[in-house]
Design a protein around this nucleic acid. Sequence first.
DNA 1: GTCTATATACGGATAGAC
DNA 2: GTCTATCCGTATATAGAC
Lengths: 235, 235
Amino acid sequence: MNYQEFQKSINVSKEQLYREIYLANRDQIQVKKEETVIRNLSRIFDAALKISNEKGFQAMSMRDFSKETALSMGALYSYFASKDELLDMILRQGRQLVVRILNAHIQPIEDPVTKLEAAIRIHIYLSEALQPWFYFSFMEVKNMSPAEKENTVAGELYTDQIFADILIEGQAAGHFAARDPQQSASGIKALLQDWYVKRWKHARRQTSVDAYADFIVDFVMAYHRVSDGGKVQRS
Amino acid sequence: MNYQEFQKSINVSKEQLYREIYLANRDQIQVKKEETVIRNLSRIFDAALKISNEKGFQAMSMRDFSKETALSMGALYSYFASKDELLDMILRQGRQLVVRILNAHIQPIEDPVTKLEAAIRIHIYLSEALQPWFYFSFMEVKNMSPAEKENTVAGELYTDQIFADILIEGQAAGHFAARDPQQSASGIKALLQDWYVKRWKHARRQTSVDAYADFIVDFVMAYHRVSDGGKVQRS
DNA sequence: GTCTATATACGGATAGAC
DNA sequence: GTCTATCCGTATATAGAC
């Protein structure tokens, strides 16, 4: 799979996504006309991610936010009870979407080697498609409520475990060399996160998302190859 | 080298470090008694890093800060002109120290393979010794003045280049396999950064700094081994 | 549903006493 | 050198008109 194919496969219409958010937060949202809610939620989420990724969620004032969404401060507060509630909403919805897409693509695969490569690619492609959200959820940990902080940590450990489980299975079947699976998984995650955290660096080098995925797959596979014919040699 | 040895080798006394900071910022600092300056600068830097790493520099109020340093707000402002100046001071001093130690340890080494391993270890050990500063400089990019942001980016590219140069030299001498050196360097950096960015995860798994360094060295070396006898096998 | 106007609190920074 | 008291801008959030 490459990025273009991945994009097609997750082609959930934006409208569909925001309808789900509306239904999930029906109690918080005072506005009742569904069409209006969907249009405005879309503006609200996009604006919040845009401004936060430029200057941080905490540094985003409601006045900035009001300007970017083209909604008055009064109107905004009929979609969420407080700025902190908005933060929670963004995190919750993103996490849900990420888990759903990850599982849909990875779980069906049987062969551990194919599965490891797929998991790496899907994670990179997903973080490309939802880059603003991934970056946001990485950088805003400090501003989260204790409950949301826990959820974010749990999410991180959950995806670590996806990789660890694939490695364990592959080692048992003799396809991967014996390595500490948790440690490997954590290293893989570090490499994946670099794609959306250090975006400016990859853009500067004009690395495409597919080229980056190829690189990480090679890098990771080299460490898990079963036998080891070569060695680095000291002079 | 292990972490304990490294610690001894950089045993610059704290007092010596703060004396340098005082001399470098003599114009900004209104207080003239050197002993007082050193004592208070030490409090100021420690407190700023501590609070910022908990809740972010921008969320740290001068009142919080005053309490943590046990200095009044009035007193604080005789050590820096504004909160933003304080940010700049912290970044400048840390960068200077980091570059000095990195070069001192890495430049003398000749053999590329030994040098690559040393560069990895030194970087990890250094980020362990100065963990609060590394984390700060990573997370506070958004709050930096344009000039400091540029310096931070330059610092990142500078250390990338250290690794790239080692790889280029090693490839030319036939000790490393042919890989894109810039790409490799960037991947190595991602793995190194994980040590101080995801500290909670490594602490939870009780990974020691030496164990982490061993792991990264193995991981990176596997990718740069000259010949490749083994393969992962798909079932 | 959305707006404008405003209540209220808290931010950084400084003046002047000691 | 350090402190307390205070200035003044800006923050979030809401009330009430339309």
